[in-house]
């Protein structure tokens, strides 16, 4: 069993509205799994089913090979998109309470909280009320509470919203560290640059259906078009340009560069190798810039959603 979490043909209806339609995902152990999709695609419903907040109408969910049961609550840490804390409760008390709800003993929770408070340098907040903290500060508490009980599975729904870039980075590093310590992370977001940075697997939901999933690199490989972005310099740029246009499919390209005359996206045949293109180009002009165009997660996201 290499998958920590397996959802098999999960469906969920709310009245006449189908929120999830036969969705299956498999989250490998120790991976960071991006659950992507436009608003209303069913991401939150799926996450709530994994958290046993709602029950699926059909299908099953296995955690570590076992069907979900109440005891699994302590194995999961969940940071919902709609999140908050009791405003008039003190930070320390509140963190202890939430940790105890996850099944930790008070003493254990206390010592673990101390560790985290020191780590994030917020030790003096213990007796403050949440309403005295800023939004970003409260989010830090929220993050600590989510990971405090060392869950096997961490679920973050838009974790970076409300953080300034510095704290977002801090949290990102913490997530990566938790992954390295053995936790598996499900990561739901619209922010594709963070998907690019963090996720190794993704699943894309659209209108209640899963329309794409797999390793991020494999998917990128499928979506690559053998296109190269090149920047050339030549005394006779018009002639070179025409020559290239005769041999390859080209599109204009825009990128920042100091002194290139010709900026192009050049597509080559699947059978051709990049070296062939490169040697051809070097024979004609001076090459300043040569990069394979790999589709970003963002491009894949938009393209797939549009096609469906």
């Amino acid at each position: 069993m290499n998958d920590l979490l397996v959802a098999d043909s999960v469906s969920k209806n709310f009245g006449n509205f189908k929120a999830l339609n036969q969705v299956s995902i498999a989250v490998p152990k120790g991976s960071i799994f991006g659950l992507l999709g436009p608003n209303g695609a069913g991401k939150t419903t799926l996450i709530r089913i994994i958290n046993q907040i709602t029950m699926p109408d059909e299908g099953s969910v296995l955690l570590d090979g076992q069907p979900l049961k109440p005891e699994h609550i302590k194995d999961i840490g969940y940071l919902p998109e709609e999140r908050g804390l009791y405003k008039s409760m003190k930070v320390g008390e509140q963190a202890l309470y939430l940790a105890q709800l996850k099944g930790m003993s008070k003493a254990e929770a206390k010592s673990r909280l101390k560790y985290w408070f020191e780590k994030l340098e917020i030790g003096d907040w213990w007796n403050k009320k949440i309403q005295e903290l800023s939004k970003g500060q409260a989010q830090k508490i929220q993050f600590i509470v989510t990971v405090l009980h060392k869950p096997k599975l961490l679920i973050f729904d838009e974790p970076f919203s409300g953080f300034d870039p510095i704290n977002a980075n801090l949290i990102k590093d913490e997530i990566l560290q938790l992954r390295d310590e053995g936790a598996t992370v499900i990561f739901s977001t619209h922010r594709m640059e963070s998907v690019e940075e963090l996720c190794d697997h993704i699943a894309l939901l659209h209108k209640s259906n899963k329309i794409l999933d797999g390793k991020l690199n494999d998917i990128k490989g499928q979506y690559k078009t053998n296109t190269f972005e090149v920047g050339l310099q030549s005394n006779n740029s018009t002639a070179v340009l025409n020559e290239i246009k005769d041999r390859f499919e080209v599109l204009p390209a825009t990128f920042k560069n100091l002194h290139d005359d010709i900026k192009l996206n050049i597509k080559i045949n699947e059978s051709a190798s990049s070296n062939d293109l490169l040697s051809f180009l070097t024979s004609k002009a001076e090459v300043h810039h040569f990069v394979e165009v790999i589709p970003s997660a963002n491009d894949i996201f938009i393209q797939t959603v549009k096609n469906n």
């Binding site: 046993q52 907040i53 609550i73 969940y78 919902p80 999140r83 908050g84 939430l98 509470v145």
Partner: peptide, 17 residues
């Protein structure tokens, strides 16, 4: 209502029924 407006409710019910 307070739990709803403070948005803590989802955190709580991921732990308790």
């Amino acid at each position: 209502i307070e739990e709803k407006t403070s948005r803590i409710i989802e955190v709580i019910i991921s732990s308790v029924k």
